[in-house]
Each structure stands twice: as structure tokens, then as C-alpha cells.
Design a protein around this nucleic acid. Structure first.
Lengths: 212, 212, 212, 212
DNA sequence: GATGAATGAGTGTTCATTCAT
DNA sequence: GATGAATGAACACTCATTCAT
């Protein structure tokens, strides 16, 4: 009788989580446009006006999903890649955490990237999140380079980091599409792609276009 | 009186191209859902029923855009990367052609990937196209590996190729977002990321996860 | 201030009846195809989405009309023709009730038969209703025949009943087209046509084709 | 080489018959509204503007179908029921011809009645045709009555004839729905229904409603 | 706090019909 | 005579969003 007071009159915070759960699920299944507020409300076991009262319009609701899932992902990564470890160790742990997250929350990942990528209203939100990732990766590389006594132009650093993040997202998609694939193994593969190249960079090896 | 354009009663083939041009433009600007058939028709300088008569429903129209742009892109790449060149040369030329294409047809690229990625109805179409790219890249790597007397598991090859393609798409996005950036330079950067890692692979260097 | 109708926010059941009333009226006036959902909604004093929310698509709405009017008609007939009366009495009362119904609800009749007959999607619905009528009439005839110690093949019975129902529908059309005609008198006329022939049948008189 | 000059440049009369054939077929299959001018033109092996040039708008085209099929039917009946025969003989021959026609041209019948009945624009056309039939039947009855030295009110005569025509149409529908049924037998059944009652009338027997 | 009732606005799609060649 | 090209106009249906209770 005490802690499970049936279904109604739950405190706001709980209700909001239920709604977000439902929203993430429905957005992930149907996509942003095809998802209807009706379905989300029904799935959350609540009436539509409540959804509007608590979480605002459809766009705002989607952004709220984005934030929650993005924060969770960032925390998973940040918690794994302690900043005092050597660069390869940090990269490896970060990737492992990332793919672990994607493997565990495919719905969340789908909302975060599959849906958000295509819809312009969220391009900004997404770009911000991606920028944080790029920054982290670029930071790792820069840190390692400096430790080796090297340096490269900021823009090059950014672009390389951008490419690595893109490759990682791409493998995350691949993982989301192959439910039986092993996240850990996928992380290892990504590490091979990333680190082999990065390690070369660290040692000053670069490729230059041939003179036509 | 002779060469006056005579705006009306154009043959079907011409009208279809006009419509596809307009559709690519509008889809790319607004996204698939936000794009309206009215706007596309108006932009093509034709009435809506003609669009339906020639290119079918909105989905079919989008698929037609996808095909045209995808084919153009593939041809640009295939025309550049002759199969009898060494692997690095092919990769470089392919990348250069690819980024050149994206730089020149930002709208087409947006339709191809930005929009298609998010919309479930086109996931299949897109996956097919991406699969062709992955196959080409994997083929290059495999060819080079065999030339070196090495071999790796097909799935590893696929995943590495997938990652490289993902990184490339990601840089293409970056390029599309930075209108002043130089496609050639972007290609060079991608080549650095890709080839440095690939070259390591070719020499049998791999990274292995630490034993926890 | 108390009994003001408060035109809005009516409970669902009430609104549904209003909508059905409007739909029967509009369908009957314009025919199924020419009727527009806009006009029905407007006539019901409600917005279109409510019609869809409560009664579904145009076809479903029409079927709902069919059911309501058909049920009303059947009840009127069944209430009048008590099964323990002699056959001629039952037939007479049934016919009187039927023509009374048609005379009173010309719109309903038009929806039921005039419209439904022509539109393929409703052929099934209509056939079912007609089959119920045919069955009732055939039952009456069969009952009377057995009371006379006679019997005829089931198929002949069905066809005769079918013809009688057809004649009746036809007179109902006639009645609907002659607003000043008297339903009771029309019933008497139909009774003459039906019963004179039926009574002959009961006495074993039949007509046989001449040998050519 | 002489009399079959391929498909084009046929004389107008021939083309019109082809179009009417196609129109009857398509209208009968799809119904008036669902039938599209495109399909009719295609089925006739001709372009749409030709259909408009020769036979006018969709409604006019349908009326043309109605006329052709109606005329054919009337001729079939009139040719069979010579006016100098006794009433029962005429009725029987007329019915046999009628059901024979329906059995042979189900498409035509469907256009004539199934479609035309429901669509208001053709109510007038149809009423005219039906009136001709009613008149013929009423004439038969009147003729026979007078031969017997009897007479009944014109309106009663009309209504009885209307009922008989309605019963006949109804059985024609039944026949159209039962492709294996025998037209001749159906005619016999109808004759039973009609003549048994009519013969009673001729002998002055009538049914009167009970005094409640 | 919670919801059933209600709607404005918009979109994809179709079709009869006609012009220009 | 014949047709491909073209369109105006309409209509079913949906959905995010908000009142009134």
C-alpha cells in the first residue's frame, strides 16, 4: 500500500520520464514525422493535453528526448574515458562505452541520429552534440600530439576528428542494424581503423597528393 | 521568332528533367516531409497533375531523385578511379571525384544522404547504394592486401570499409556545411585518415584490445 | 440562463446521431459520390475531423447510415408483423409498416436503396439486408403452403419471394417519387399484386410455359 | 488486303461503336464514378480527345450507352411480343425475350439499371425507359381487362404494372448475379408470379384491407 | 490535475476536360 | 483526324494543438 500508489496522480517527474520513454520508443519506431502525438500519449498511458502541459510541442518533446538520450550517452562515455589515461587507452575505453551504449539503447540511438539527422529543425541540436564529441576526440589527438612534441593546424585536427566521429557513427548504425553483432568487437574494429591512422599521424607520417 | 523558348508543350523527357531538378532542390531545402508537391510543381513551372503523370507519387518522385543523383555520383567516381591503377591511386582519385561531386551538387548530396537517411521508406534504397560503395572500397583494400600476400576475414574487411565510407560521408556533410571549404583539400584530409590506417593494415599491423 | 442549448461540447452519442442525420440527408440528396464530407460536417454543425474521429471514413460513414436506417426499417416491420398471425395478415401488416416507413423517412429509404444499389462497395451490405427480407417473405409463404399441405422447391420459393421484394422496393421508389401518394393505399395495391398471386400458389395453381 | 485496313482511320460510325462497347464494359465493371475516361479511351484503343470529339462528356457518353442498350432491349422485347397475340402469350414472350436479353448482355444490363439507378443525373433517362415498359405492361393488362368486360382505375393499373416491372427487374438482377441460372426458367418463374395475380385481377378478384 | 471534445490548416492525389501540334 | 501535353478544381483524410469541463 505504501510505495506503489496505483497508476494515477504520480509526481510530475515520474510522469515526465514515462512520457519520454514512450516518446523515444515511438519516435524511434516511426520517425519524427510519422510519429503522432496520439500514439505517444496512448503509449505513455496518459492524455494528450498532459503531454503538452508537461513537455510542450512535438518539436520540444523531440528535443527533450534528444537531450535525455544524448546526456546519457555522454555520461557513459565520459565515465569510461578518464582524462588522465594515455590517449589510446582513453580512445579505446570511450569507443567501448559508446558502442556498448548503442548496443543497449538502440531506440535511443535511433532517435538521436537516425531521426535527428534528417530533420532540419534538429540539425542545430545535433550539431552541438556532435561538436562536443568532435572536441573530445580532437582533444585526445592534440594531447597525444603535444606529448610527442608535434602539432598540426586546428582545422586539420578538427577535420580528422570529424572523420573519426563519422566513421564511428557509421559503425554504430551498422551495429544497430545487426542485432546479433557484438558491441565490443565492433569497438575493436573501430579502434583499428582509428588508431592505426592516428598513430601514424602521431609519428608524423602523412600522405600527400601526387602532383598530377 | 525562331528560337523563342516557347515555354510550353515541351517533350516529356525535358519536362521530367525539369521536375527532377525542382524536386531535388525542394527536397534538399525542406526535407522530404516538409516539401510539398505544390512547391515542387511550381518550382518546375508546371502543374501538379503533370508531376503525378510523369513521376508518380511523392515517394516515387523522391526515389527518382535518389536514383538520378546516385547514378551521377557513382559515374563520377567510377570514371575517375580506373580499376587498373594501384590501390592508393584509385582511392585518391575516387575520393577526389567524390568530394568534387559533393562540392558541385550540394543539393543532390543533401537529397541523397541528409534526407534519405532519416526516412524509413528509403532506407532500403540508400542501403543499396551505400552497399555498392562499401563493396568498391572493400574491393580496393582486398586487392591491395592480396598484392601484399595478406588476407583478412571478409567481415572485418566489410566493417573497415563501412567505417571508411562513414567517415567519408561525414566529411561530405562537413563540406556541404562549409561552402567555402575546398573539396580537393577535404579529399586530401580524408585520404590521410583512410590511407594511413589502411597502409598499416596492409603491412600487417593491427591493434588489439588490452586484457582488462 | 439555465436551458440555453449550449450548442457545443455535446457528448459523443448525441453528436454521432447528429452526424448520421446529416449524412443520411446529404447522401440522399447528392448520392454517395457527389456528397462531400465537408457538406456533411457543415450540415451536422461540426468540423470534419470530428466526423472522422467518430464515424470513420466516408465509406464507413455510409455503412453506418445504412445500418441505422436498415435497423429502423426492420424494427418497424418486425414490430408490426407478429409471427403468430395468419400469413395474409402478417404480409399485410408488414407491407403497411414498410410503406409507412418509406413514406415517413424518404431520405433514409433513398440512402438505403437508391444509393446503395448502385455503389459496388455496398452491394454486400445491401444484399445482406435484402436477403433478410427475402427470407422473411419466403418464410411466410412456406408457412402458409405447409398449412395447406403443399410444398414447393426451395429455389422457387426464394425466387418468388425475391420477385415480391423487388416489386415492393419498386413501389417504394414510386412512393418516394410521389410525395402526395398515400402509403397505406400503396400497401394495399402491393398486397393485391402479391397476395392474389400468392393465394393462387397456395391453392396449387401454377402457370406453365406453352410448348413451342 | 482489301476489307481489313488495319486499325486506324476507321469511319466514324465504327469508331463510335468501339467506344460505346468499351464504355459499356468499363461502366459496367467499375460503375459510373469509378470509371475513368482514361480507361475507356484506352480500352477502346483510341485517345481521349477522340472520345470527347465523338461522344461528348462523360455524362453524355453514359447516356449514349444507356440509349444504345435500352434500344436493343426494347427491340428484343418488341420483336417477341407481337401485339396481336393474347395477353398471356404476349406477356410470356416479352418476359422470355427480356430475360434472354439480360442473360446475354449482362454488361449492358448492369449499365442500364445497376449503375443508372443510383446516379441522379440519369434518373430522368431511366424513368423514361421504365415508363415505356410500364406503359407496355399496363397496356397488356388493360387490353385483357377490356376483353373481359372489366376496367380499373388508370392509377391502379399503373401501379400494378409498376410493381410487375419492379419484380421483373429484381429477378433480372438475380439472374445477373447467378451466371449459371437459366434465363428461360427465370422467365417462367416471373410469369407465375405475374400471371397468377394478373389472372385473378382479370376475373374481378381483389384483396381488401381488413377493417382494423 | 486531468481529459473528452473540438478544430484550423494543410497535403497528397485524382479526374474530367481542353489546347497546341 | 488524331494525340501528347497540360491544367483547374476539388476532395478525402490527418494531425498538432487547444478549450471547456
Amino acid at each position: 500500500m505504501s510505495s506503489v500508489p496505483a497508476f494515477k496522480r504520480l509526481p510530475r517527474a515520474v510522469r515526465e520520464q514515462q512520457m519520454l520513454d514512450a516518446a523515444v520508443k515511438v519516435f524511434s519506431r516511426r520517425g519524427f514525422h510519422a510519429a503522432s502525438m496520439d500514439e505517444i500519449a496512448e503509449d505513455a498511458g496518459i492524455s494528450k493535453p498532459m503531454v503538452y502541459a508537461y513537455l510542450g510541442t512535438k518539436e520540444e518533446l523531440f528535443v527533450a528526448c534528444l537531450h535525455r538520450e544524448g546526456t546519457r550517452m555522454m555520461q557513459a562515455i565520459a565515465g569510461a574515458a578518464a582524462p588522465d589515461l594515455p590517449a589510446d587507452e582513453r580512445l579505446w575505453r570511450g569507443l567501448r562505452a559508446f558502442f556498448g551504449f548503442v548496443g543497449a539503447y538502440r531506440d535511443g540511438w535511433a532517435v538521436l541520429y537516425r531521426q535527428a539527422r534528417g530533420e532540419q529543425p534538429f540539425a542545430g541540436e545535433l550539431a552541438t552534440m556532435r561538436a562536443r564529441l568532435v572536441e573530445v576526440v580532437a582533444g585526445m589527438l592534440d594531447h597525444a600530439l603535444r606529448a610527442e612534441g608535434r602539432e598540426i593546424a586546428a582545422i586539420d585536427l578538427e577535420v580528422v576528428a570529424y572523420a573519426l566521429v563519422g566513421a564511428t557513427e557509421s559503425l554504430a548504425d551498422w551495429l544497430a542494424d545487426h542485432p546479433d553483432a557484438d558491441p565490443e568487437k565492433t569497438a575493436t574494429r573501430m579502434m583499428n581503423v582509428a588508431w592505426l591512422g592516428a598513430a601514424q599521424l602521431l609519428h608524423g607520417v602523412t600522405w600527400r597528393p601526387p602532383v598530377d
